[in-house]
Design a protein around this nucleic acid. Structure first.
Lengths: 342, 342
DNA sequence: GGTTCTGCTGCAATCGTTTGCGTAACTACC
DNA sequence: GGTAGTTACGCAAACGATTGCAGCAGAACC
């Protein structure tokens, strides 16, 4: 276990003071030194295989060049592309990222945000935030640069990068409407998530605009964005007795659950009941009946949020948009057809 | 931006020395102090919301309680479950993880391993290792606890946690054989990955045991484990003129590519050509014709490798298995049928 | 009462960097 | 050749925690 060389070792080898070595290795401070000294030091450093100790540097400068990424669950296929988007901007800048899975559990989230802070992250990208979370607001207010992605905390002052959920819902609602659907049910996302809440509101508003009737039993409220809840809600909808012809789901996984229940009950999708999703997660185009959905720009949402975080980290007083909304796109596949006649 | 309280602040508030506070907050050193002092300090610390600065502690102790996880690409659905497995053991122990995507590019890998070391990770779990990589071997030899997962570097002394690839290939080969297949082609994984190499060898050996003829054109060599390569290799196989009745793919993504080409050419799977995969990635059971494959224990492989890493980190001289092989399981679905008669 | 022991706490060095400040040496100017 | 202004580098104090060692009480013993 050969000890990694430190500034001191290089100073010893070159006969200069450690502070000189430090400056020589820092491009922006390098200018105050004579060129040949810089050159010599750099050569020796490279030859010794010097790698700065970011712990020590971070201790001194309070910048560790690492950021925290909070997501609900990495096995949810929607998040890996977002992470890659984030890293596409962070990594070239020299940042590394600590990723934590909150499982959408508040207590875990609070624990994990401390885990991140203990490690001195320079900022946090939070893709798992609940609609209401005082602790997170407090952490941000205390000075930790933070941006929430996909979701947001209303009136928190925390910059959010979100998708144009309202527009997406409107588009897909219109799409169903144009096919002739008039009895459109909705499987709503969790009420404690801004996406769940926002999409439901957009659904209700949009349906009203189109002059559709939306009785209470046309909306099933899920507790989580997963297939199991999709199944439960679909069953509830079907058993509710409302003569629906289409189910607009708040996200793809709920829709996948809907597929299952329909198939199990011998109800054909799309000829008997149309189904739509939201997000356009990977592999959707391979799963029949291929889901018509709304594509959110997963990679880009990551990029944009990282851009904003960088701005915040380099200048805490920087003026950044409190909310950035990215456009969405209707992805037409096979899960929508005209309602059965009669 | 209220400054986070430090040991010194607590010392000031309690009227004792910072070293006493440090000991009071450390369960294993706490015993040397009188109970009431410990109690008082803990109360004040809790009330002030003290959180240790792991940077400072790490600088002193050379342990940061963070580990590095190297994977090829998080968007590859096989890795998230492995990560969760890793974290299921690491997180309760207080470790956080820095995840990096190598994209299977050697230069990136070398860059990223330094990124990890700069941050003083206590150990590395490497799920992206190439069969031959002197730099990684060197890093491990220099004392960084490391374990490779899924893949391995032969004779490197680096503990590896792998799946029983040979057994898996044998089982699936036998399964095809029992259906009557005698002309079984293979889409091999990348030669620079131990999995690609190992599965190919197992295929050749297994075919020989069964008395099957395996001409050169029965094997297509992929460059990457992805759908595009699966398509390319399938096309090459089909165009090669060898009258195959089944394609045994080195992993699921290659098989997914095979599905596409077969469908595009109007060749029905499984009635005309059977296809098998390896890994059993998520969602496979929803994609028709549902792929018959070999299930590797993704979560468990993560768990086991983390267990080993922990052992290595807590006691560098600990005796750990140089190779741990986890059992695999045949997952029968719909992509295999008897070969067309005649 | 002096000595030894033990139990508790303080002192100070240390980890590797960064950075404000001080100070040589050198240039330039009158 | 004295003064002022640069230039180029060294000095030393941080950052926040850990830990070997020292030291100070009080108890215990003869």
């Amino acid at each position: 276990m050969r000890k990694a060389p430190t500034l001191k070792d290089i100073a010893l080898a070159t006969g200069v003071h450690v502070s000189t070595v430090s400056r020589a290795l820092n491009p922006s401070l390098r200018t105050v030194l004579s060129d040949d000294v810089v050159k010599h030091i750099c050569e020796v450093a490279a030859q010794m295989g010097y790698r700065p100790n970011r712990l020590a540097a971070g201790l001194r400068t309070r910048r560790t060049m690492t950021v925290g990424l909070m997501i609900p669950d990495i096995t949810n296929a929607i998040f890996p592309p977002i992470l890659r988007g984030v890293e596409s901007v962070l990594e070239p800048l020299g940042y590394a990222s600590i990723i934590v899975n909150t499982d959408s559990i508040l207590a875990r989230e609070h624990l994990l945000v401390d885990v991140l802070r203990e490690r001195g992250v320079d900022g946090i990208i939070h893709a798992a935030v609940l609609r209401n979370d005082p602790k997170i607001v407090k952490v941000a207010a205390e000075g930790t640069p933070m941006v929430t992605v996909n979701r947001k905390i209303e009136n928190s002052g925390i910059p959010a990068v979100v998708n144009d959920d309202a527009q997406g819902i409107r588009m897909i609602l219109k799409y169903l409407f144009d096919f002739g659907h008039r009895k459109i049910a909705h499987i709503a996302g969790p009420e404690d998530l801004s996406t769940g809440q926002g999409r439901k509101q957009a659904f209700v508003a949009g349906a009203r605009e189109l002059g559709l009737d939306v009785p209470a039993r046309a909306i099933a409220q899920s507790q989580r964005f997963d297939e199991a809840e999709g199944r439960r809600c679909t069953a509830a909808l079907l058993d509710g007795g409302w003569p629906l012809t289409a189910i607009l789901c708040a996200n793809d996984r709920l829709a996948l659950g809907a597929f299952e229940v329909l198939r199990a009950r011998g109800i054909d999708c799309p000829t008997q009941v149309s189904v739509t999703g939201f997000n356009d997660m990977p592999f959707l185009d391979l799963i029949p009946p291929r889901l018509t959905t709304v594509r959110i720009q997963q990679f880009e949402v990551g990029q944009v949020s990282a851009d904003i975080l960088v701005k915040l980290m380099t200048d805490p007083a920087a003026a950044v948009a409190s909310e950035t909304t990215l456009p969405v796109k209707l992805v037409v596949r096979d899960s929508v057809a005209p309602p059965p006649s009669g």
